[in-house]
Amino acid sequence: MSDLLVGAAVDWSAWIRSSEAVAWLLLAIGLMFALPRTYRVRQRVGWLVAAVGLGMLIGDSVLSSTARSSAAVFWGLASIAVVGAVAAVTMTSAIYCAIWFAFSLLGVAALMCFQGAEFLGIATLVVYAGAIVVTLLFVLMLSQPRGDVVYDRLSWGDFPRVASPLLAIGMVAMLTAIFPAALAQGAASSKGLPSGDSVARLGAYLFTRHLIGVELAGTLLLAALVGAVAITMFGRESVGQEEGR
């Protein structure tokens, strides 16, 4: 791995001036302004700038691709996932956040199916969108009857709001810049998954090589179930004692 990173010579000064770097920068700045702060006008500007950045990235990738039609399908699905994620992180109302998260999951599940992992795509949809988002909406309605509250309209202070999008997006951008050079050097040729019924193959693999892992995951789920019930019951008792005092 260290060979890959050391050997990957990237011309950073040329990269900084490339349109790709500008696209990443626009995405980071857009995310920065889209994160909630009091005035909504700024948030809309942020969404717009982030959309322009994402569009530039997608346009670059599609145009430079050798097979444009499949690249366009891929980036269409990917933009569903990314746009949903950005909206889920930046919306002021937590209910909208949950709904946009479910939208983003649609994109992720579709990307998994695109990759030949149909079972994982369906499982993601069933477990996340079916169970977790519904539970989340229940908790939201139980705990927060009012709509627009101050801690949703304001995020943490200016420093985290400016620094974290720039750092996080910058990290991904630099990794992306290193990637082609590193892979061209060290990548073994791809084998690809064998064709055929992918679900049946995954099932056979799962229940032969990873049988103990499956059992452990089941046990973990049972323990989590018991734990959640215990937290809810005992937590309620202690809240009752505090209020009765």
């Binding site: 994160l35 994620a85 950005v86 983003s104 999008p165 996080a168 997006i169 990290m171 991904v172």
Partner: peptide, 10 residues
């Protein structure tokens, strides 16, 4: 990577 970055920011 983009999804991780967005989630981290949030």
């Amino acid at each position: 990577g983009l999804l991780v970055a967005i989630g981290l920011t949030g």
